[in-house]
Computed example of a mutant assay.
Amino acid sequence: MSNRDGFTGGFIAGALFGGIVGGILGTLLTSNRLQESLPGDDALSGKGKKRNLKPPTEQSIEASRRGLEDKIAQLNEAIDDVREQLSTVNGRPEEREVVGWEEQAQRDR
Rank of each mutant, 00 (worst) to 15 (best):
L44P: 01
L75H: 04
R83M: 07
D108R: 03
Q74M: 08
R96Y: 03
V98Q: 15
A13P: 02
T27P: 00
R4S: 13
E36M: 08
G6A: 14
E94M: 08
E103K: 15
P93T: 11
L34A: 03
G22V: 01
G19I: 01
F17L: 10
E103R: 15
D81P: 00
R109H: 12
E62M: 14
S87F: 01
A105E: 12
K71D: 01
F11Q: 10
A105I: 06
Q35W: 03
I20C: 13
R4G: 02
A13M: 05
G9F: 02
Q106P: 01
F11G: 12
G22N: 08
G46H: 04
R66F: 14
G40F: 01
R65Y: 06
T30S: 06
E95V: 12
E102M: 03
K50F: 04
G10T: 03
L25N: 08
A105W: 08
E77R: 09
G22Q: 07
M1K: 12
I61K: 15
R109K: 15
G9I: 06
R96L: 07
D81C: 01
P93I: 05
T88Y: 08
D80Q: 09
E102S: 04
A43R: 06
Q106S: 13
R92E: 11
G22I: 00
E103M: 11
N76F: 05
S64P: 01
D70N: 11
D41V: 07
T88I: 14
E36G: 02
A15Y: 03
S64G: 11
M1D: 14
K50L: 05
V99K: 13
G10E: 07
D41Y: 03
T57P: 11
S87C: 04
Q85V: 07
D41Q: 07
R51L: 06
I12S: 05
D42K: 09
N52K: 11
Q104S: 08
G67T: 02
I24Y: 07
G100R: 01
E97A: 05
G10I: 02
D80R: 07
D80I: 03
W101L: 12
V82N: 12
R83I: 04
A105L: 14
G100W: 00
S31R: 04
L38Y: 00
D5L: 11
T8V: 10
L25V: 15
D42E: 05
D42R: 08
E69L: 14
S31K: 05
T88E: 15
F11A: 13
G48N: 04
P39R: 02
G6Y: 08
E62Y: 09
E102Y: 01
V89Q: 11
A43D: 05
L53Q: 10
G6P: 00
D81N: 10
A63L: 10
